[in-house]
């Protein structure tokens, strides 16, 4: 049995199942992070005083991390473009590999930031600012790690699919890319919220 519209677009909706599915998933993610940012706002507005993020966090590291994620969004887009325009699997895998490297460096920098805080004796329980810092960056990190796992699969064992169905493989890269952009976007909002204000 074949599920219709797995790789072909349904004419009247113009969508494949996977592409539609990822947008729905992201809609729920918007609600998830929406709940988180709303909580941040409520807690911050209710606080009597609030530290400046720049005084407590390393703005340079945060900015570098933002840059890394923006670059990784470009590389993953290029990977998808290469597949779509018939640029071949090898090129796409190189670009996916670059995306993974950028993501891993992000994680390393983040881990380093956390470690410094923990060494200074700072914990989520220290105060509301750090509670939000650890929780929000942590939840973002989990999303990023999930993305890295999928990318690792696509660049590694999952690439075998390309030979059987290039179209389906291309769609998987596209869908992962959409997700990756979202994770990137969350950071782009998170960075100024936590580090700059």
């Amino acid at each position: 049995m074949e599920i219709p519209y797995t790789t072909a677009e349904r004419p009247d909706t113009g969508l494949t199942n996977g592409r539609f599915g990822i947008w729905l998933f992201l809609a729920s993610e918007v609600m998830f992070f929406g709940g988180l940012f709303s909580s941040y706002l409520l807690l911050r507005l209710g606080a009597t005083d609030w530290p400046r993020g720049a005084d407590r966090l390393d703005v340079v590291l945060g900015a570098v991390n933002s840059l890394l994620l923006v670059l990784s969004s470009i590389t993953i887009l290029a990977a998808w473009g290469a597949l779509r325009d018939g640029g071949g699997l090898a090129k796409a895998r190189r670009l996916l590999g670059a995306t993974i490297v950028l993501g891993v460096v992000f994680v390393a920098i983040k881990a380093n930031e956390w470690q410094h805080k923990l060494e200074e004796g700072i914990r989520p329980a220290t105060d509301m600012f750090y509670a939000l810092y650890f929780t929000m960056t942590g939840l973002h990190l989990i999303h990023l790690l999930a993305g890295l796992a999928v990318l690792g699969y696509l660049a590694g064992p999952g690439a075998a699919l390309f030979r059987r169905s290039p179209k389906q493989y291309t769609q998987r890269v596209e869908i992962t890319g959409i997700y990756w952009h979202f994770v990137d976007l969350v950071w782009i909002v998170l960075f100024p919220t936590l580090y700059l204000t």
């Binding site: 809609a27 609600m31 998830f32 929406g34 709940g35 909580s39 929780t135």
Partner: peptide, 12 residues
């Protein structure tokens, strides 16, 4: 799809 995620936030 849209109402459950904020509870997920809350549970975390």
């Amino acid at each position: 799809l849209l109402a459950f995620p904020p509870l997920q936030t809350a549970a975390v």
